[in-house]
Amino acid sequence: MIAAVADAVTDAVPQRTLGRVQRTLTYLVILLMCLLTAVPLYVMLLVAFQPTGAVFSGGDLHIIPQTISFENFTELLTETDALTYTYNSIVVTVGVMVLATTIACISGYILTRFEFRGKTAFSRSILLSYMFSGIVLAVPFYILFQSLGLLNSHFALVLGLTALLSPLNIWLMWQYFETVPISLEERAWIEGASRWRAVRDVVLPIARPGIVTAAIFSFSAGWNNFLLAQIVLSDSEMYTLPVGAALLLGRDAGWETAMSVSVLICIPPFLIALFFQRYLMLGINIGESG
């Protein structure tokens, strides 16, 4: 029925008009999506770069800022612990990136190149464990870290985040290593390279896009995580940026301060999205094909 109507439309309307309608519709949808994403971001920037109190001064918000001020940021960096939070976030994020990516590479390589008993069960459990949300594992993590005496440490947070992230990363690296033909490694062995040397010289350079993608996923998990950080970290000295931001909001800090923390949080992901777009797309593609 629909096909028949479509045919009728195609017959009746010239191709050029049809193309034009299609294009217009596409752009409309894109525009709508951009607005949905951009408006909140714009509001965030607007509030963050206005002098304290300006937002509520007249009771209404100017769409076009009257003045631009860095007052909020100065206050944020001098009066609050935002710098400590940032430092903590960097420590945790780098830790997660290194640990999670390394584990993903090693596990992915083993899954690709070695046959072992229980391999299928293992690969299924990877997928299964990815289905659990962080909240399900939060309490077990708490108990685990408590018994290990690791509570309130960045190391525990790195371990926990790596555990949450590993299914996805291992899956990604596994799929990526599968695309590296075994014959390249075999050629390297025959040419005299040890197994490790062949991995270093041949497999890892070819898999670099996959590794970068895994690292980006790890970055995102480490930098943006709130839930696990809040559970594991009890001392405000240890807080990461998202937990710290929530703390600021919860206290008497104004919206301006909260929004300027948000801007701070947004900068690294924004830069990564800007410069590593290609790898993000790759992650999506691999995810689809895998």
Partner: peptide, 13 residues
């Protein structure tokens, strides 16, 4: 020994 593979197996990078 040396070996030439069916898929040529050149290191792409």
């Amino acid at each position: 020994i040396s070996m030439v593979f069916q898929n040529i197996a050149l290191y792409p990078h």
